[in-house]
Simulated assay, not measured.
Amino acid sequence: MLRLGRSSKIVLGVIVGIVLVFMYVPLALVVLNAFNSSRIASFPVTEFSLRWWEVAAVSEPIRAAVLNSVIVGLGATVIALILGTLSAFALSRFRFYGKQTVNLLIVLPIALPGVVTGVAFSNTFNSILEPAGIQIGYFGMIVAHATFCIVMVFNNVFARLRRMNPNLQEASMDLGAGIGQTFRLVTFPQFRTAFAAGGLLAFALSFDEVVVTIFTAPPGVDTLPLWILNTMARPNEGNLVNVVATVLILLSLIPVYISQRLSRAEEDE
């Protein structure tokens, strides 16, 4: 077992402390300014108020942006769960020509800069589909998000399938169970935690995506990241953004907690 000396522990402790300060002090400033009565974010806060929380609660643009983000995130997640899982099964269970190429093509979208993906989809929608009379609109944004969300599901499910024992499925079918029954009772329970974790990651990635959304969002449609980006250009509403950001910080604790529970459940299996 590696043992660290006293000086090494002190140095590591200082480094960890500095990293934590850089990570969490900005978040603390966001939360503090969410209760700032001033129009402009500042520190220290001279007067606390719920003024901006009341404005946010009745803001129709914020509600519309949240709804759009949820719809796009759920749509992209559903597509990612289906295609990512099917791709993981195909690449983990079968051998075929070009298997490595297919694997590369599946994971490539997450490696590409968002601006490249956004420009590619924008050119496709505006230069090919629209001249052909196909108005893809809102669904195009969901498809664009799904391309990189698929990777989240694929990586989680593929890694889990690689560790599974295929003899269990074969034994189930030898005992008379059909393909559907075997999948429902034997196969799916073994990778459901990876399936759920991949879905959570896909939704989170889609929910806060901004670069691809800029290029693919239909005119007049704002997701929450786009609303924040546009509102930040108006300094007099900066603390309204801090209110929304504070709510997102609190809500982000939910998927983090669920992911930890799923990871622990997978380790105990």
Rank of each mutant, 00 (worst) to 15 (best):
S69T: 03
E47A: 12
K9W: 07
S69D: 05
T216K: 07
L168Y: 14
G220R: 00
S122R: 15
S263Y: 09
N230K: 14
E130G: 03
R264N: 12
V14K: 04
L168K: 10
C149K: 00
G84H: 04
G199N: 02
M152P: 00
R162M: 11
L12H: 04
N103R: 13
G84Q: 03
E209W: 07
S37H: 07
L108P: 12
M173D: 07
G114S: 09
I258V: 14
V30I: 15
G73R: 07
Q260C: 06
Y97H: 10
N103Y: 12
S49D: 12
F94Q: 02
T193R: 04
F48T: 12
G137F: 03
T213G: 04
V107T: 11
S38E: 11
A41G: 14
L168G: 08
R163K: 13
G114T: 13
F35C: 08
N230T: 05
V143K: 02
T193Y: 09
L168R: 13
V256I: 15
I136L: 08
L168T: 15
V30E: 13
V241Q: 05
R51I: 03
V55Q: 13
S172P: 08
T101H: 01
A90G: 15
S172Y: 09
I40H: 11
L4I: 03
F48V: 12
V107L: 00
N155E: 08
I40T: 09
E60W: 02
V157K: 06
A57F: 11
F48R: 09
R93F: 13
L175N: 11
I79A: 04
E54A: 14
L175T: 14
P225F: 07
L86N: 06
E266L: 03
R184N: 10
R3P: 01
M152V: 00
S59Q: 07
S38R: 10
G137L: 02
M164R: 07
A90Q: 06
G13R: 05
V256H: 01
A56D: 09
S172C: 08
Y97V: 13
E170Q: 15
V243H: 10
L27A: 05
N36F: 00
P44H: 02
I150W: 01
G13P: 11
I18P: 00
V72H: 07
P109M: 00
L104V: 13
L229Y: 15
F154Y: 15
A88H: 06
V241T: 08
L4E: 07
I18V: 14
I150K: 00
G75W: 03
V116I: 15
A146R: 01
A146L: 04
I258Q: 00
I228K: 01
R184V: 12
F154V: 01
R261E: 10
R162G: 12
L67N: 04
V244Q: 10
L83G: 02
M173A: 14
T246W: 07
A233N: 08
L50M: 14
E209G: 05
N165T: 13
P109E: 02
G114Q: 06
V211L: 10
A171P: 11
V16Q: 05
P109I: 10
V30G: 13
I228S: 02
E209Q: 05
Q100C: 02
A90S: 14
